[in-house]
Design a protein around this nucleic acid. Structure first.
Lengths: 340, 340
DNA sequence: CTGAAAGCGCTTACAG
DNA sequence: CTGAAAGCGCTTACAG
């Protein structure tokens, strides 16, 4: 049947504890000869440690939860950008011999439940809005074990990893201003008092200040969510609502691509009539026509840094409460040009 | 600290077993009054069952592994199509109160290790090639607990869920033949003796037979993998290598979209000079120009069926060894037209 | 309808 | 360098 620690111990003629030490690499306490013998016998018997028993006894599972919003306990909503991060996180955890529990979260309470129920060593929050993060970082959540990606929530409860959203939007606006644009729409989800969109809006305004001008606040066009369809609808009505506008900055590539489609449907040419800049640098940017100018985020760094910070916090018991901000850069493609 | 079954039992003045029965819904064995009292106290105390202890004692974890190929233990490779399935699988499992362990697999042996180590109730294999599946379905894997998506491997070891690949390719070819095309390239990963690509190639040929003609086998253009870049390279050389060709069927949308880009770069117009048909019906198909004609797979059904089959097999202990094949349909968009 | 006891497969102090 | 014992928090026969 199942091969247990006891079986290996009996075969090797040592105690279970010694086998445990060998298996877990606590070699300081075991002689070389014993290590070799135990290892050989464990391999012969096909011994595979039982993670449940380990978790129970050690009160630690070597498992990390990747928690993702799931509206009304129904469907997981993962953007292409977050999908890419997910893949990288799995890889980073696997490299370090951790396992990943993927779980959709409908209610903030489920975060605590997931942590406790599975003895999770920690959790990464991916894709939550600022307001949700604020609700999650309540007293029940152990800060040292929970990390939010793209979070700006204040307070000591959750450390975070995010791209330099302020600088990214500033780069985008600067690029358009340099090309000669002045009437530029900013579009994305409604900016909260803090959070990703707020940062980008602030960086966007800063670029105007850098150029000695001021952004016309009436050119803020909030959308419900960053989807292709919302972008398309905005693109369709853009020239009617804002005849003076010559450029658009969208907080997500998928939104920008929808806008390009809406503009095309309404008879406007990109970039001749309207320039468009996105954010993320999805592969998709190179598949559409014209290819989308955008702000590139370093997905690999985001995932790796998140995992590294979290595991360091877990393994050293010291909480790195300094959030990490990653560099971004402008990728110039074919969706931007001087206004005519 | 942690609230355990024992705490609830003491507070309620009943045995641990009774609490266990209440918590697990074995109500046949407990009086209504006791159920109510235990439930109330459990809620008051904030009792959350420990999954590790449960797994250990019950030898079942209510956890399912989602296993995905990870080349050389380095990076997870998930196609957009499989990403969408992943999200749906998580949702389906969560609805049924199962948890999901996401794990990249570099070596077939890791499948067994994952199952044993975490007492997984079962596993779903997503994104593996036929050859890999054959290696995985060795004697060590308990068939009733492992299900392969898009698998055609013979034998009783793994049951599967897939789209009707034969019919899909036949629909694609039929569509092109109806339009008047005769010289049609088939491209995708090299067809194995069995598997998804083989099915599609056979269906593709069948359409020609249906039309009383025969496909020119020299128009098979294998690519290493279904990527945009491989498609682009094929598109670039297509008209030079096959001047007579007026249409292409690709086994994946992403490949088809790359082909369209390569064709455009080489100066050919789609669909005027060359028609292109893809497979999958990714959202992406509607974002590119021209919009891609393709064969639509039902992603939700694929994920839901996979979960349902697997859980039925687990919970009833009866192995549904009849693989399930899901319907597909043609989605006509702008990348196909009659040859000129 | 309810309970006492054994046990799932590990790790953790404590001793030597 | 090695071991015996207790315990992690649950479930599973077995009894009554």
């Amino acid at each position: 049947m199942r091969v247990t620690l006891r079986d290996v111990a009996e075969q090797a003629g040592v105690s279970m504890m010694t086998v445990s030490n060998v298996v877990n690499g606590n070699h300081a306490r075991v002689s070389q000869e014993t290590i070799g013998r135990v290892r050989r016998i464990a391999a012969e018997l096909g011994y595979i440690p039982n993670a449940s028993a380990r978790s129970l006894a050690a009160r630690s599972s070597r498992m990390i939860g990747l928690l993702i919003p799931a509206a009304d306990s129904d469907s997981l909503t993962i953007s292409p950008h977050n999908m890419a991060i997910l893949g990288q996180i799995e890889r980073a955890l696997r490299k370090r011999d951790y396992h990943l529990l993927l779980r959709g979260i409908a209610d903030p309470e489920e975060v605590t439940a997931a942590l406790k129920s599975w003895d999770l060593d920690g959790a990464i929050l991916l894709g939550f809005h600022e307001a949700e993060l604020a609700r999650i970082s309540g007293p029940a959540v152990d800060a040292a074990r929970v990390l939010a990606i793209d979070g700006y929530t204040q307070g000591p409860l959750i450390s975070g990893v995010r791209s330099d959203d302020f600088a990214g939007a500033r780069l985008a606006a600067d690029h358009l201003l340099e090309l000669g644009h002045r009437a530029i729409v900013f579009t994305g989800p409604p900016p909260a008092p803090s959070g990703v969109v707020r940062q980008r809006l602030d960086g966007f305004r800063q670029a105007f200040a850098d150029h000695g001008s001021t952004w016309d606040e009436t050119l803020l066009e909030p959308v419900d969510t960053n989807t292709h369809e919302h972008g398309r609808r905005l693109g369709l009505r853009l020239r009617a609502d804002h005849p003076e506008v010559t450029a658009v900055f969208a907080t997500a590539d998928i939104l920008a691509i929808g806008i390009m489609e809406g503009l095309a449907e309404s008879g406007a040419a990109v970039p001749t009539d309207v320039s468009v800049v996105g954010f993320d640098d999805l592969d998709l940017c190179r598949y559409v026509t014209p290819k989308l100018t955008t702000i590139a985020q370093d997905i690999t760094a985001k995932a790796d840094t998140a995992v590294e910070l979290l595991l360091r916090s877990i393994e050293s018991e010291e909480h790195a409460d300094q959030p990490v901000t990653l560099d971004v850069h402008l990728v110039r493609r074919d969706s931007t040009a001087p206004p005519r």
